[in-house]
Amino acid sequence: MSEFLLLSRGQWDADQSPEQIQGAIDAFYGWFDEQAAAGVFKGGSRLGTGCRLVTRERVLDGPFTEAKEIIGGYWFIVADSLDEAARIAAKNPCLACGLSYEIRPLEAERASAFRAANETPMAST
Rank of each mutant, 00 (worst) to 15 (best):
R9W: 04
D26S: 11
I71L: 01
E34Q: 15
P18K: 06
M122I: 14
C97R: 11
R110Y: 07
Q16T: 09
M122R: 14
S45M: 08
E19G: 12
G62L: 03
G98R: 04
G48C: 04
R104G: 00
V40K: 10
Q22L: 13
A24M: 09
E3C: 05
D13W: 07
A36Y: 13
L7M: 15
E107G: 07
R52F: 06
I25S: 09
R9A: 02
R56K: 12
R104P: 02
F4E: 00
A27D: 15
S124Q: 15
A79P: 03
D26Q: 15
N92M: 08
E107D: 09
R56Y: 07
A113Q: 08
A38P: 08
E69C: 03
L7E: 05
M1R: 14
E69A: 08
L106G: 02
I21F: 04
I103S: 00
K42M: 11
Q11V: 15
F64Q: 01
A85V: 00
I21E: 07
L53G: 06
L6R: 01
S45P: 01
T49P: 01
G44Y: 01
G23E: 15
W75T: 02
L82R: 03
E3L: 08
E107M: 14
E69F: 01
G48W: 00
Y101M: 09
A96G: 11
A86Y: 04
A108E: 13
L60M: 06
A108V: 08
K42W: 02
E57S: 15
G39K: 07
A116M: 10
D61H: 02
A27V: 12
Q35P: 04
E57T: 11
E19K: 11
A85F: 00
K42S: 05
T125N: 14
G73N: 03
Y29R: 13
G72F: 06
Q22H: 09
